[in-house]
Design a binder for these strands. Structure first.
Length: 435
RNA sequence: UCCUCGGUAGCUCAAUGGUAGAGCAUGCGGCUGUUAACCGCAGGGUUGUAGGUUCAAGUCCUACCCGAGGAGCCA
């Protein structure tokens, strides 16, 4: 069939009130009465109700209208008019209707479904209004990430996905075969960003990250997207400030561009997001431990915060907060040491309130070659794999710092949804590789 | 890997050890303004799999399979 390139997208429908236009889309809902059909059509940019009145259209068209099924693709032609009763405020009095392709027994009905059922049909689930809103918010966050760093003079430097070794050596990697040798899917672009920082000063990468952890929680994916800035001649304080301003910017852009989706489709309490203004409350690990104990929460100095600890701590705040200077023993080998206290690392996490937890993790890197070599050995990592990384300390070593932000965790937090799996178009989980 | 919970109609869920049900979806009928429309009727089942206990098992026992949430790990 010929494509009408003059057809109207629904998000522009208000500009065409009183005009005759052509719409193309999918049937979201068809309500049939004796002399009236209400067909709600969705084209990805919006929804529009078409009204088909018996007697005002020919019998063949009336028959087509009466038998429309959910998600059939259709073309409608008719006059657009404002109407208070129509969703979106505008509706079409349809004069022509063509079924482009019928949809039979669409599996996702307007009623409730379980997570497994929906995830098995993720390719169709994406069409629903909530998932559509999440796609839009994710897209806005992706754009905002690039805008933020670009406006501050950062250069995007893409990190490789295939890597010959563990970046951090602590978590499980996906192993693959690479022309006869072992390769791993990247779990972080950070080490490469350290190299990039010496080339462009302020670097960031943004891409997929893989963790083969057998996590079964709503806060973990095996494949997720992470943005990782790295800044030469920056210290821990600089990084906390950057992280706070970045966080504020991302949340701000989401509210600015999608208040309607957040308040409407997602039922998000936007007032909580409006409290996200830098600087955030900051507390040291020491203080955090003291605070946990003061709250009657047993926690021993030296351990990492578990999820319950994080939640307890987060209850003290109504906006994101920063915890810094964790014990070096629980952090990655490349983390710098606190000159004030050798037990501590120059690390920081940004945690979101309302139970969302850690969204950013990072800190200042160790720049001393001998220290790093010792750390690699201590962590049982193969030193030969880090030759190039040590070079960064051999040829003009420099203080630098950076962090990683999990995109899906930010999408989840901004949107107010419960589970990370809805924050990515096609989630990869321990028990899910498809669709 | 460990702990907890679950698996019954296409979907979401009920069902004291005693005839397997409802809502939605689907089909048919009704309704001139519906908003998850509403009203009536109908079809729809190897209760995850394999054993076992019992006069009798969706229900109790054992093993296994699948999934969810949490722990650990982290973004």
């Amino acid at each position: 069939m010929a494509i009408d390139h003059l057809h109207t997208w629904i998000h522009e429908i208000a500009d065409h009130a009183g005009e005759e236009v052509t719409l193309r889309g999918w049937v979201q809902k068809n309500r049939v009465m004796k002399k009236l059909v209400f067909c709600v059509v969705r084209d990805g940019t919006g929804i529009c109700q078409a009204v088909i009145t018996r007697g005002e259209v020919d019998d063949a068209m009336w028959e087509r209208a009466v038998s429309l099924t959910q998600e059939s693709s259709i073309e409608l032609r008719g006059i657009v008019q404002a109407d208070q009763r129509a969703p979106g405020g505008y509706e079409m009095q349809a004069r022509e209707l063509q079924v482009l392709s019928p949809s039979v027994d669409y599996p996702i009905t307007p009623k409730e479904h379980g997570a497994e059922f929906l995830l098995d049909r993720r390719h169709l689930w994406l069409r629903s209004s909530k998932q559509h809103a999440l796609l839009k918010i994710r897209h806005t966050l992706e754009r905002a990430i690039h805008d933020f760093f670009h406006s501050r003079g950062f250069t995007q430097v893409d990190a490789p996905i295939f890597t010959p070794n563990a970046c951090e050596g602590t978590t499980t990697l996906f192993e693959t075969e690479y022309f006869g040798q072992k390769a791993y899917l990247s779990q972080s672009g950070q080490l490469y960003m350290e190299a990039a920082a010496a080339a462009v000063g302020k670097a960031y990468c943004f891409g997929p990250t893989f963790r083969a952890e057998k996590s079964k929680t709503r806060r973990h994916l095996t494949e997720f997207w992470m943005v990782e800035p790295e800044v030469a001649f920056a210290d821990l304080d600089d990084m906390m400030q950057l992280a706070e301003e970045f966080f504020e910017y991302l949340v701000g852009r989401s509210v600015e561009e999608h208040r309607d989706l957040l308040e409407g489709t997602l039922d998000r309490d936007v007032s909580m997001l409006e409290k996200v203004v830098a600087p955030f409350p900051r507390l040291s690990y020491d203080d955090a431990v003291r605070q946990l104990n003061a709250l009657g929460h047993d926690f021993e100095w030296g351990g990492d915060f578990g999820s319950p600890d994080e939640t307890k701590l987060a209850e003290q705040f109504d906006r994101p907060f920063v915890v810094h200077r964790f014990p070096a023993a629980i952090k990655a080998f490349y983390m710098g040491r606190d000159p004030q206290d050798e037990r501590l690392s120059l690390s920081m996490d940004v945690l979101a309130p309302e139970g969302y937890g850690e969204i950013i993790g990072g800190g200042e890197r160790a720049s001393d070659l001998a220290y790093l070599e010792a750390q690699v050995e201590k962590h049982g990592l193969p030193p030969e794999a880090f030759g190039w990384y040590f070079d960064l300390r051999r040829y003009g070593s420099f203080p630098h710092a950076g962090f990683g932000l999990g995109l899906e965790r930010m999408v989840t937090y901004v949107s107010g949804i419960r589970h990370l799996r809805e924050a990515i178009p096609f989630p990869r989980l321990i028990h899910r590789l498809g669709p």
